[in-house]
Design a protein around this nucleic acid. Structure first.
Length: 262
DNA sequence: AACGATTACAACCGCTCACTT
DNA sequence: CAAGTGAGCGGTTGTAATCGT
């Protein structure tokens, strides 16, 4: 017993015609997004719902930018990819008007090759998964094993490395109602290199006065004085990715770099 | 000009997750 | 709690456009 086909056999495939685009646009303008299977049926489009959704989200939706990815956008894509891996939807959220599909295509056709060229010769084995970028940033190679859609973690995890007391703590006094995912975190803050784990070495330094690694500042919480206690500590707040994935990998690397035990 | 190779990108496909029943 | 369904996501493919010979 195989998987049920998502579409009937009598559907159009391939490039969308202008008439189909207009039909879909008008239908969505009147009825709104969602229920894509019904959109396909009710609008009289011989397309499957998934195809309608993709066409709308990637090309017809107002505000979608096409082509001409700027240097800033390119740089942002590289940085976000470094942190998030092939999670194009998350990356796209950080780039207004760009779609996951476009970014994915751009990466596959341009950036992956570009970076490949820049990274030659390959780093020595001792550097493990980190290597130098053109801006002298440390590249933390995203893990291929990262889940595509990590299960939501409703009570976000809080991790602190506090070098001062050598306490490799896993608990944080921050209030539990602070809901912030790493993705939200990245989206909410202003552009700032240090948010992207781009340069932990330079941020770290061996400054005895401030022997901490600061990856980013949590948005200030109006209610929680306890959250202040989290400041000046390595803190990542994560809702979407369980510890064993992105966060865990990154923190292990950071811990390794700091000479901390797991 | 013709033709093969390469590139760019739109679209398809299968998998997974969240929500509903 | 399990099954069904809708939607989102990312990998892959197909093909038009461009380039090189």
């Amino acid at each position: 017993m195989g998987r049920r086909p998502c579409c009937s056999k009598e559907i159009n495939k391939g490039a969308w015609s202008r008439e189909e685009d207009e039909t879909l646009s008008k239908y969505v303008a009147i009825h709104g997004e969602g229920k894509w299977q019904k959109v396909a049926q009710n609008a009289g489009l011989k397309r499957c719902g998934k195809s309608c959704r993709q066409r709308w989200l990637n090309y017809l939706k107002p505000g979608i930018k096409r082509g001409d990815i700027s240097e800033d956008e390119e740089d942002m894509i590289i940085r976000l990819h470094r942190l998030l891996g092939n999670r194009w939807a998350l990356i796209a959220k950080r780039l207004p008007g760009r779609t996951d599909n476009e970014i994915k295509n751009y990466w596959n056709t341009n950036l992956s090759k570009k970076l490949q060229n820049q990274q030659q010769p390959p780093p020595p084995p001792s550097s493990s998964s980190s290597h130098k970028h053109k801006h002298n940033h440390v590249i933390v190679t995203p893990q291929a094993t990262m889940p595509r859609r990590p299960k939501a973690v409703h009570h976000h995890n809080k991790i602190i490395f506090d070098d001062n007391n050598n306490n490799n703590s896993i608990n944080c006094p921050c209030s539990d109602n602070e809901e912030a995912s790493l993705a939200d975190f990245l989206i909410d803050i202003d552009d700032d290199d240090q948010m992207l784990l781009a340069n932990p070495i330079e941020e770290h330094s061996n400054d005895d006065n401030n022997n901490k690694v600061l990856l980013g500042l949590r948005k200030s919480s109006p209610s929680s004085s306890s959250s202040d206690q989290c400041n000046n500590k390595l803190l990542l707040s994560e809702k979407f990715d369980p510890l064993e994935t992105l966060l865990d990998v990154e923190l292990k690397r950071m811990a390794s770099f700091l000479g901390l035990k797991n």
